[in-house]
Design a binder for these strands. Sequence first.
DNA 1: GTGAAAGCGCTAACAA
DNA 2: TTGTTAGCGCTTTCAC
Lengths: 348, 348
Amino acid sequence: MTETAPRPTLEAVAARAGVSRATVSRVVNGADGVREPLVERVRRAVEELGYVPNQAARSLVTRRHDAVAVVIAEPENRVFADPFFALQLRGISKELTSHDNQLVLLLTEGREDHARVGRYLAGGHVDGALVFSLHLDDPLPELIRRAGVPTVFGGRPGWSDGRGSAVYVDSDNRGGAREAVRHLVGLGRTRIAHITGALDQTSAVDRLDGFRDVMTDADPRMVAEGDFTPGGGERAMRELLDRCPDLDAVFAANDLTASGALRVLRERGRRVPEDIAVVGFDDMLPIAEQTDPPLTTVRQDIEEMGRLMARLLLRDLDRRSGDGTAEGVGGAPSGVILPTTLVRRASA
Amino acid sequence: MTETAPRPTLEAVAARAGVSRATVSRVVNGADGVREPLVERVRRAVEELGYVPNQAARSLVTRRHDAVAVVIAEPENRVFADPFFALQLRGISKELTSHDNQLVLLLTEGREDHARVGRYLAGGHVDGALVFSLHLDDPLPELIRRAGVPTVFGGRPGWSDGRGSAVYVDSDNRGGAREAVRHLVGLGRTRIAHITGALDQTSAVDRLDGFRDVMTDADPRMVAEGDFTPGGGERAMRELLDRCPDLDAVFAANDLTASGALRVLRERGRRVPEDIAVVGFDDMLPIAEQTDPPLTTVRQDIEEMGRLMARLLLRDLDRRSGDGTAEGVGGAPSGVILPTTLVRRASA
DNA sequence: GTGAAAGCGCTAACAA
DNA sequence: TTGTTAGCGCTTTCAC
């Protein structure tokens, strides 16, 4: 490793180009009102010196950081068990990158971490935040609200309203669930069960609601609670089979859950889809394509969700820097709901 | 959203506590040499005002950012298809967090991104970098070297040495592979095949070497090239079966590959493990436990790898801030190799 | 159109 | 032990 290279400053560039710091600053920041020959000279000096602006110095005066925090609050291990999280990050990263913003990742696992995140957000290190995986009792939204950082949520926040508006991006969980169940109905199935996700998350609640929209007269015993994991899927599937041995279809709250259910069905000698049809949710490829049989499932465009969240946030940040203040995007509780599509494979 | 709150400054705290800015700074930064009563007064003022230090101002003078970049260079989609990446991030995040460092995530997908990353790293926005998923022809290491940022690599970098030292953390890919193959030998298998990973990554090469260490006289036709994906596993498995119909075991370069192989075996009516035993690598739970049959595989502690990388980097950063300069940790090309363990399930 | 000068909020000598 | 002071590198009025 070499000596810490003494990085050139604006001053140095100015000297080299024979102009003032102010002029260099203007050129570097693309402000107009500098005459062409000077621009050229400055550009060359920047090039020759390998000048890169010092972000800290800049932030100190502009109060912008061109950085966004991504907060992933997941006490359990779920996020880490499926690629959901990676895909969202990718979408976010692409969008932020194309707007020259940095992504600061904040992973939290317990209560202690919340305080830390709250402090960080309140510390004004980033211009905004993208927040995921909220659970109903999560203290994080409140901390974030108090921190006063512009925020976009991933997934509909679960708090009963009155707590002010929230900007969020979500999949059409309810509509997607309806489509899944209708598909099963269209297959001639009549004894359709549902394995829910973790019901402290709105995505699970919404999918359950979608199920009920179609199965208006569903026997309550046809619904078993899962938790979005394969293990939960297994447990729930066993319950269902014990309670209602004659069921002929299952809609699982996600693909992981479905994979657990499939395992139990195989173990109990039920053929899929002949005896029991199975539909999942997510279309996580490494899961959905690898199960036996491959899973019919509801696809949501995870990467696009991430992208859209970032886009909404950046737009909001731009608006704020115009006037001094701003409401949540649009001034009212606003959510953007992305469509889902049913992907047919062999399981239903 | 409310007005942008005018955050209190050191000055404000000092005024409130009736001391100088310097004293407040000392208290805030935990420097000793301030008498108890004053400390107390300052603490109270900080509390009352809700003071949070302005990181930009601090960095401007200290030239520390307490931030580390995590660079994940993955042109393909592989990282996003398995939870590898999430686990490493978790390990890194935990370690950084406990040392009050932030994690800046840099995802790259193509050549254009490399330049951007290089610029960012050279821009002195972060104190160091953790870099993953290097491929043999990757231009990134060179960019990073030129940026002069202290770096720890995840996985042994593939360049032929002479290009200077590199600090890295890796699993014992070769040893793990040996153990896997020996296990198959111990099972009485004699016609053992190997499906490699993407051979432009050292992990794949090392696992192949491990295979060869044990199967010294292996028929070259018993090795088929894969790419760490299920699809690659399928393709390779078909090849192997066509070339050597009498093989009785397969060691796959990772679990995803193994899952593809299993699918082909099932499709061709070969029983696992009776006819053909299969061993994977990684022990990615959602994959390894869900396959049919569950996968015997070589576990590497991914999260610990991430943790260790962060620890090494932070230690190095601390050392540097002591004297002005420093060599790569230990002053020589140095790698830390983490042990692997064989996990027995049903497939072998 | 360009430059001079005044800070942004903080740390780190140095004095007291 | 505490306070005073001089910048860190940049943007941004405000004159010219």
